[in-house]
Design a protein around this nucleic acid. Structure first.
Length: 230
DNA sequence: AACAACATCAACCGCGCGGGC
DNA sequence: TGCCCGCGCGGTTGATGTTGT
C-alpha cells in the first residue's frame, strides 16, 4: 500500500486563508518552486506538499491570467481537445496564463455544454444525430437546465481511469483515427493560432517552458494526429 | 423573502511516471 | 534490476454563488 503523501493528522484542509497564501508566496519568492514535500514545513504551513503545489500553480502564480476565457481561447481549447482529449495540462500549456485545472473546469462547465447544444458530441467532436440540432442561442437557460448534471456528464465519463490509455492519446484523438469522417463536420481550422498579438511575448515565454514536454507528448501521439497538430 | 435547483470552481484524491539510489 | 520517493496529472467532490419558482 502506498504511503500517504503527508501526515494527514497535522495538515489543514479546505480553503486557504490569506495568511497561508502569503506564507506560500513569500517562501516561493525567496526559495523558488520545487521540493513540494518539504516546502510546507519549511514555509511554516500546516498543509501537505501537494496542496501547496496546487494552490501555487492554480491560484497564486504571478503569471496567471484570471477572468473569463476569450473566444479565441475557447476555440483553441475545443480544437486541442479534439486532438488531445482530456489531457488538460497539454492543452493548458498552449494557453498562456491558464492552468490545467482552470481549462478542465471551463471545459466541464461551459464548453462541453456548448458543444452539446450545438449537436456535437464533446467526446469525439462529431455531430451527434441523437442530440438536439444547433439552436440559435448557444447556451440558453432553459435548454441547459433541462440537462441534468448527470445527463450532461454521463457520455463523457471515461471508463475506469488509466494512464496507460493516454498512450493512445484520448477518446477524442483516437476517434479521429477511428473515423476520419469526423472532423469535417466541425469545420475545425486545425492551425494552432496564438490567442492575441498582445500576449505574444507571454505566449513565447510559456511555450519555451512547455515546448520540450509537449514535443515529447506529441511524439507519442499517432502520426496522423501529429501532422494535424503541426 | 425563502427555498430549491443548478452552475461554478477551488481543492482533494488516487494513480502512474520517471529519476535516483 | 528493482525499489522508493516525489511530482504531476486527470477525475471527482464539496462549498459557495446564482438563478428560478
Amino acid at each position: 500500500m502506498r504511503k500517504p503523501c503527508c501526515d494527514k493528522q497535522d495538515t489543514n484542509k479546505g480553503a486557504w486563508s490569506k495568511q497561508e497564501d502569503q506564507k506560500l508566496i513569500d517562501y516561493i519568492r525567496a526559495h523558488g518552486e520545487g521540493c513540494w514535500r518539504s516546502l510546507p514545513r519549511a514555509a511554516g504551513l500546516l498543509r501537505c506538499g501537494k496542496s501547496c503545489r496546487l494552490r501555487w500553480i492554480n491560484y497564486l502564480r504571478p503569471d496567471l491570467k484570471r477572468g473569463n476565457f476569450a473566444e479565441d481561447e475557447e476555440d483553441l481549447i475545443i480544437k486541442l481537445h479534439a486532438l488531445l482529449g482530456n489531457r488538460w495540462s497539454l492543452i493548458a500549456g498552449r494557453l498562456p496564463g491558464r492552468t490545467d485545472n482552470e481549462v478542465k473546469n471551463y471545459w466541464n462547465s461551459h464548453l462541453r455544454r456548448k458543444l452539446i447544444d450545438m449537436g456535437i458530441d464533446p467526446n469525439n467532436h462529431r455531430l451527434n444525430r441523437d442530440l438536439p440540432r444547433p439552436k440559435n442561442q448557444l447556451v440558453s437557460g432553459s435548454s441547459t437546465s433541462s440537462l441534468s448534471k448527470e445527463q450532461a456528464c454521463q457520455p463523457c465519463r471515461r471508463p475506469v481511469k488509466s494512464h496507460g490509455d493516454n498512450d493512445q492519446v484520448s477518446d477524442g484523438a483516437s476517434s479521429l483515427e477511428d473515423d476520419t469522417c469526423g472532423l469535417p463536420d466541425l469545420n475545425l481550422d486545425l492551425t494552432i493560432s496564438l490567442p492575441s498579438s498582445s500576449s505574444l511575448a507571454l505566449v513565447e515565454e510559456r511555450q519555451k517552458y512547455t515546448e520540450s514536454k509537449i514535443e515529447r507528448e506529441l511524439e507519442k501521439a499517432p502520426s496522423s494526429t501529429v501532422l494535424l497538430f503541426i
